[in-house]
Nucleic acid binder design. Structure first.
Lengths: 218, 218
DNA sequence: TATGGAGATTTTTTATACAATGTCAACGAT
DNA sequence: ATCGTTGACATTGTATAAAAAATCTCCATA
């Protein structure tokens, strides 16, 4: 079983990304501890972790509040994604082991099947797994960690808007094919294209719902 | 007065970077608490913070140990530096405020003066300040954090080898001039050149001293 | 001799109690 | 009437103690 600190962390993280806490609202330790059915200590730990990841802001002796996630921070996230994730794909095309490739293709099939079967609820998870496996194949732990940090800032939630899934599948397939074929530059270009397309959709959607919290992912 | 958690953090951080704890050695909470003259709680907090920054590794119920920085990770560090730091320079050229530019030029002068006066001991510090101010001007907190992470992996220490300081000054000056002149691409190129040159020196030096710990920086 | 496990020990994790600090409202002075 | 001060209150920071988990030791057994 995971530690309570970890449990508190994921619970709070999910709650914040789901928008269950209004941005800027205060998070008092004891209250959260009561709600989560645990003591103050693990809750504090979770809050400190969230603070280092920028999801909450903490001032000594003054408390922690959920970070008001500015629209420009979404832009920042995607700017970094456009640089780091294609880079990871290039490295993956160079350095992926046979095992890596097998896992990537398995994740690709799983995603494609879910699209075919219209299992829309599974898509965010499968999408995340596919991306993560690709990046892991780059054999660059620090780069992987940075990318993970970026993904922490992408709220999953509903992800109910499942239009264009066929296009996303095609884009994913292009990336995977390039990596398996060891075509370094092509892999990077394909991922850049994929992210650019997603960005368009996300920013448009974010603007449309104006302050709404769920977004297009991947 | 700062909180004890913060005090513990900086104390441990400095100790680790100074090499006072051997990489891979175990950091047990109670022991550290005794040495620092405080209780376990703030020490734990500090350790968690250090873990998010990659200076220590933490496994649940198994303890935390100082991260063993692998030699191949030097290469990884520089690969990411070559991407992220030029990117930050481009952004700085676009978004730096008047205050940012003033601080950058002040840091530039300070570095140049130190070179002229042969105050070699001050150079690593001044170099770090200059770089950091440039990156801070990019107005991209997350990018700044990533770059800080990279710099954590560059051991400072001796840095006694102070050859080529005139060249480094010239390279710095080129970056600063481009940023002040709002020449985005030129700023990125100049920094890339600077880092590439440093990389050559660093890797050569690292290979030469084979396992030695101090390196050419910037 | 090698192996496997029960108990002891160490270390981490969590809970609870206490201290320190900041906030806010009521009050008084200018 | 406004501004500053004081004190009660709420909340965070720290210490200490108890609980849980992992590791280690050592002996019995194959």
């Amino acid at each position: 079983m995971q530690t309570k600190g970890a449990a508190a962390y994921s619970a709070l993280r999910e709650a914040i990304l789901d928008g269950r806490f209004a941005p800027g609202s205060r998070l008092t330790g004891q209250t959260l501890a009561d709600e989560l059915g645990m003591s103050l200590t693990p809750v504090r730990e979770a809050l400190r972790l969230l603070a280092t990841q920028g999801l909450v802001e903490h001032d000594p002796h003054r408390g922690t509040r959920v970070a008001p996630l500015a629209p420009e921070s979404i832009e920042e996230t995607y700017r970094l994604r456009r640089v780091l994730e294609p880079m990871a794909c290039e490295l993956a095309a160079q350095h992926a082991t046979a095992d890596d490739l097998a896992e990537i293709e398995a994740a690709m099939s799983a995603f494609a099947s879910a699209v075919d079967d219209k299992r829309h609820d599974d898509l965010p998870e499968l999408n995340a797994i596919l991306h993560h496996r690709i990046y892991a194949a780059a054999q660059s732990p620090l780069l992987l960690e940075f990318i993970d940090r970026l993904w922490l800032r992408i709220p999953f939630q509903a992800m109910s808007l499942v239009r264009h899934q066929e296009q996303k599948t095609a884009e994913h397939q292009a990336v995977v094919t390039a990596i398996v074929g060891r075509r370094r530059k092509a892999a990077g270009r394909a991922m850049l294209q994929h992210i650019t397309n997603s960005t368009q959709a996300t920013l448009a959607r974010a603007k449309a719902m104006e302050g709404g919290s769920d977004q297009e992912v991947s």
